[in-house]
Computed example of a mutant assay.
Amino acid sequence: MNVALSAVLIFILLIPPLSLYLSYSFGRFPKSGPKFTLLEGLMASAVFSLLVHAAAVLFISKEIRFDILALISGGDLKSFDTKISNTAFKSLLTGFAFYNLVLLLSCIVLGRGLRWLVIRYSLHSRYELFRLYNRWYYYFNGYKPEGEDFDIIFVDALVRVQEGTMIYSGFLVDFDCEGEVLNQIYLKNVIKRDFKKQETGEDGSQRMINEPGEQKNIEGHSLCILYENIINLNIHFVSYPDEESELEELTTQVSENPDQLKLFS
């Protein structure tokens, strides 16, 4: 038995079904893939591949030489030349390649079509079976049971830095994930404050009290904060007022005093 030849043939047969899964799940902020052992993954792929190829065979009207396929996969090629000529083998090989190409493209189109339907009818946010994105995506995009609309996200992040513990506050503009793991967040219009304020006692000694320090604006377009340095996050889903004048007033209030955010959140 030719193990290498059999492995190549099996790999070719597994490509179209795997492309269906990958085309369906491909996108930004994807959820983690199923956690299988190597043996479980091979078994699941083999069963799924069998179903896909069985369905595809139903649409083929020409005769399929399963005996030749079994002969090649078995690696016993001693009687190969008595069963099929070079011309016939060339025709079968071309047909096999064309079959896999058509099936590959069909699986990719089907996968993207299923993904579009799941997104179109919001099935991914209602049913765990159809979930497409990681949980941070749903958290930061406001997929809440109460279903409230919002315009922007304001974040207070308690961050561990070299100087101690700081509070960074700003508008969330982006975030980066690897599977279900959050790597970093990006904030805009950021201010920072000491988590605890230093105060001089009556005896002249310095001590820390449980009050935030004076806020300081951070210059720059956006600030990247590594999630490994974040102790906790406080998130506000903010809706803009309908009137433009109120919106300008709202922006001024946030930049001057983020604690007033509760007035319009």
Results as ranks from 00 to 15, higher is better:
Asp156Lys: 12
Tyr137Gly: 00
Gly170Ser: 08
Ser61Met: 12
Gly75Tyr: 03
Leu20Ile: 10
Ile64His: 02
Phe130Ser: 09
Met1Pro: 06
Ser25Leu: 02
Glu214Cys: 03
Ile72Thr: 04
Glu163Val: 15
Arg126Val: 01
Asn100Tyr: 08
Leu42His: 05
Phe150Leu: 03
Tyr24Asn: 03
Leu110Ser: 07
Arg120Asn: 07
Arg115Ile: 03
Asn210Lys: 04
Ile167Val: 13
Arg65Met: 05
Thr252Lys: 15
Ile72Lys: 00
Glu63Lys: 14
Phe48Gly: 13
Tyr121Cys: 03
Ile218Trp: 00
Tyr99Trp: 14
Tyr186Gln: 11
Lys262Asp: 11
Asn86Val: 13
Glu163Phe: 06
Asn217Arg: 15
Phe66Asn: 01
Val238Tyr: 05
Phe171Val: 12
Ile153Ala: 12
Val3Asp: 00
Leu22Phe: 11
Gln253Asp: 11
Ser122Asn: 14
Ser106Tyr: 06
Gly74Leu: 09
Leu187Ser: 05
Asp194Ser: 14
Ser122Lys: 13
Lys262Gln: 10
Tyr240His: 10
His221Gly: 05
Ile231Ser: 08
Tyr240Phe: 15
Phe140His: 03
Val181Ala: 13
Ile231Tyr: 10
Leu261Met: 12
Leu114Cys: 14
Gly74Ser: 13
Lys83Ile: 12
Phe66Ala: 13
Ile185Met: 14
Phe237Gly: 06
Thr251Ile: 13
Glu128Asn: 07
Ile167Ala: 07
Asn100Gly: 02
Glu63Gln: 13
Arg28Cys: 06
Asn232Leu: 10
Gly41Trp: 01
Thr37Trp: 01
Tyr137Ala: 04
Leu39Pro: 00
Phe98Gly: 03
Leu233Pro: 04
Glu178Met: 10
Phe140Ser: 04
Lys192Asp: 04
Ala7Tyr: 03
Phe237Asp: 04
His236Val: 02
Leu223Asp: 02
Leu20Arg: 12
Asn217Glu: 11
Asn232Arg: 09
His236Tyr: 09
Lys90Ser: 14
Lys78Met: 07
Ile218Asn: 04
Met1Ser: 09
Asn134Thr: 05
Leu18Trp: 09
Leu132Trp: 00
Lys197Asp: 15
Ile119Cys: 01
Leu117His: 01
Asn257Met: 07
Phe130Gly: 08
Gly201Asn: 13
Leu69Ile: 10
Tyr133Ala: 09
Phe11Tyr: 10
Ile225Pro: 02
Leu13Ser: 06
Ile167Lys: 11
Leu13Lys: 08
Ile10His: 05
Leu114Val: 09
Glu128Leu: 06
Lys144Ala: 04
Leu104Gly: 09
Ile72Asn: 04
Glu256Phe: 09
Ser245Gln: 09
Ser239Arg: 14
Ala46Arg: 08
Phe26Pro: 02
Val52Met: 08
Asn217Cys: 02
Asn189Lys: 10
Leu132Thr: 04
Asn2Met: 00
Asn189Thr: 10
Leu13His: 02
Ile191Gln: 15
Pro17His: 08
Lys216Leu: 11
Lys62Gly: 12
Cys224Asp: 08
Glu178Ile: 01
Arg207Phe: 11
Glu40Ser: 14
Ser45Lys: 06
Phe66Thr: 11
Leu172Ser: 06
Phe36Asn: 09
Met1Gln: 10
Lys144Cys: 05
Val47Leu: 15
Leu187Tyr: 07
Val173His: 07
Tyr227Arg: 11
Gln260His: 08
